[in-house]
Nucleic acid binder design. Structure first.
Lengths: 213, 213
DNA sequence: ACAAATAGAGAGTAGCACTATCCATAAGCG
DNA sequence: CGCTTATGGATAGTGCTACTCTCTATTTGT
């Protein structure tokens, strides 16, 4: 409430985000960023929301590696929050998952069986079923004799994290804030989790190779 | 030992991998795939190793999303395995981490402090320190008031997985097999972990939104 | 004998995320 | 007031990556 009515111009938007003016215009054209209020044929004013949105876009691109299309989906949901919390999560997940390339049927069935064992309630449209199936099929293509149960310890490790994450979003405020928290959580904590796993591997490997390694 | 001396031609390599002949030639040119034994000016024979290597390349590209340069690094290490197990892990990690873009100093220091608290032994050249620091800085750029301790539960969740993974590779056979196991483990199980986390989120979200959700 | 496959090399292509250039206008400033 | 600078909007161009195509001189299989 402190700084209302601050009319921001595109050059300042550029300064606070690190994106060039040309890039911001590009995002505007691509509907990642809502247009500013036009005050004349060639003049528009932007707000703190634009600053924030732009930072979000950059994080999704640079940390999350999302493509422009995926970010547009997220931005669309953000500007039209008539979705339930659960649906918002679906938007976020579809944005980060790869575009659903065909998944091998046999492995999908096995993944579904695993999810049933876990008693996880998963929609049949979740792209991550295919993602997991493809991982399983890859292991087999490389000659590993594994089944879906290989993933069980991973599922168990991730269960409490997911519970915490979902709970902390639900506790949050408005719908828009909730979607943003969901997207940021999925993308940024996802990147952090991957990095931490590798760091943990390095530590374990250092231990295994001995202090004189 | 059953099928030794099977002279495979490029078209069969293509059939068993799904990659076009032109793509395989491209991989050959780019040194991802070692050349076949040439039996005449325009004739070469490939082996089961080529079949396997090609499958590995495709998995690294499609599941792991690795670029050609990163795959070349891995392939190079695979063909010249004079590295310790611990060094092999470094090769794998550098291949999957993004190319080390500048990381914010303040956050790197905080990440290092976290690693010290965890008593993890991490090389100062590990790219994942920067990765994690960037995640932390991103959260702050988006207005979240967090510190590196936010990541503690993630670190704890991932510790037993890493221990298991490192142990199961060490138990393995030859150096080449060990590197491949390391790379595949890092890439494929990494993808699986990310997918499982999202599935777990979906489950928790379904629970939270109630059976009537 | 002859259609089909091959190695190798170079050029060409598609998709993506910008980036540069223009123009007509508007803002800021001495 | 005049003049430099910034702006919005539109179109075209760029750099990069991972292929894909084309071509030639063979060699193969039938």
């Amino acid at each position: 409430m402190l700084s209302r009515e601050v009319a921001i111009r595109i050059s300042e938007l550029s300064r606070t985000s690190g994106a060039s003016v040309a890039t911001i215009k590009y995002y505007l054209r691509e509907d990642l960023l809502p247009p500013g209020g036009t005050t004349a044929r060639n003049q528009a004013v932007y707000s703190q929301r634009h600053v924030h949105r732009l930072r979000l876009i950059r994080v999704l691109r640079e940390v999350g590696g999302l493509g422009i299309d995926a970010i547009r989906e997220v931005a669309g949901a953000l500007d039209n929050p008539r979705l339930s919390r659960h649906e918002l999560l679906g938007v976020a997940h579809r944005a980060v998952s790869s575009p659903a390339g065909h998944a091998p049927e046999r492995e999908v069935a096995e993944v579904d069986a695993l999810l049933r064992d876990l008693e996880w309630v998963i929609s049949t449209t979740a792209p991550d079923r295919g993602e997991l199936a493809r991982a399983l099929a890859s292991l087999r293509a490389l000659g590993r004799d594994v089944d879906a149960r290989t993933f069980l310890p991973y599922a168990r490790a991730v269960e409490p994290l997911a519970a915490f994450e979902v709970a902390s979003v639900s506790a949050g405020a408005s719908d828009e804030a909730a979607l943003e928290a969901t997207v940021v959580g999925t993308v940024v904590y996802g990147a952090a989790l991957a990095a931490l796993r590798r760091l943990a591997q390095e530590h374990q490997s250092a231990l295994a190779s001995g202090p004189a390694g």
